[in-house]
Simulated assay, not measured.
Amino acid sequence: MNTMPESTQALSHSHERPAGTSSGYVMLLVLLVTLVASGAGLSQLIQEEPALALGLPLVIGGLFAFLFVLCGFYLLQPNQAAAILLFGDYKGTDRKTGLRWVLPWYMRTKISTRIHNITSDRVKVNDLRGNPVEIATNVVWRVADTAQALFDVANYMEFVEIQIESAVRAIGARYPYDDLEHKEVTLRGDAEVVSEELEKELQDRVARAGIIVDECRLTHLAYAPEIAQAMLRRQQAEAVIAARQKIVIGAVSMVENAIQLLSEKDVVQLDDERKAAMVSNLMVVLCSERDTQPIVNTGSLYQ
């Protein structure tokens, strides 16, 4: 008794296996033999009456054999396969190129195993932070299992195109577009990592159709037009803030080193008030966006 659930049975996959076909070049010789037999029968028909009983069967049999053999021929180009079916029952796949032959009542469904290249349309996706971005990708793929591609999905090429869009949406929502602090993986800053994740995600989705993804790369990545200007200003502001932070940290370090060296080498003795004034002046000089104009004090230090 089969206890497997119906939903599980529906998910069972087809698997490619070799088909029992023959070389078409051998069958060409058979075809030639049928022609010779038909010709011999025809020559008997045009002779005397006693030869009619032998000539007519040869002509009829030769013509029938000729049509029988002729209907079984088909051609396969390089990187092309043919699925062989008998009244809807899958009997195997023929991948041998050239002139091939199979029994005429077998149906041949050809399928390309060449490399396909698809550049997807731009898909609008909300990234990890909810910002709408446009993403497009280029996918290189091929059919690995002809049985799965033909019989497990309705249209394997349309299936691949839909799964590309689904994979792009899934990966686009998994990462933020950008991160100025470089603390996490981003769509813009880690294109190689994102492309690898996209390839893996897409491979998992199309494996059920017997498809292998050879390469997947992002071809377009940008904020959606409705927020592009606003996000540009935001990026500029964040960049300015980050730059200012680094400038301040560097300035503090330089001032600290200056005071320490002056004290160690006993160049000048500064009390706390003069140290504060010196720190203030140095910070202004180091952090200012414009060139500073020095003022020379020719009097006493305390005047």
Rank of each mutant, 00 (worst) to 15 (best):
M4Q: 06
M4I: 09
S7M: 06
S7R: 07
S7W: 13
S7Q: 07
T8P: 00
T8W: 12
T8N: 04
Q9C: 04
A10M: 14
A10C: 04
S12R: 15
H13E: 07
S14P: 02
H15E: 05
H15M: 03
H15N: 06
H15A: 02
H15I: 00
E16V: 10
E16M: 14
E16P: 02
E16T: 12
R17W: 00
P18L: 07
P18V: 05
T21R: 05
T21A: 13
T21H: 08
T21S: 15
S22D: 03
S22Y: 12
S23T: 07
G24H: 01
Y25V: 13
Y25I: 13
V26H: 08
V26F: 14
V26A: 12
M27D: 01
M27Y: 15
L28G: 10
L29A: 08
L29V: 07
V30T: 03
L31S: 12
L31G: 10
L32N: 12
L32R: 05
V33P: 04
V36Y: 11
A37Q: 11
A37C: 13
A37Y: 11
S38A: 03
S38D: 01
S38E: 05
S38Q: 02
G39R: 03
G41W: 00
G41L: 01
G41R: 00
L42D: 00
L42T: 06
L42E: 02
L42W: 14
L42R: 07
S43P: 00
Q44D: 10
I46G: 06
I46A: 03
I46E: 05
I46T: 11
Q47K: 14
E48G: 07
E49Q: 09
E49H: 10
E49M: 10
E49Y: 09
A51C: 08
A51H: 13
A51G: 10
L52R: 14
A53I: 07
A53W: 09
A53Y: 08
L54N: 07
G55E: 01
G55L: 03
G55S: 09
G55A: 05
L56T: 10
P57T: 11
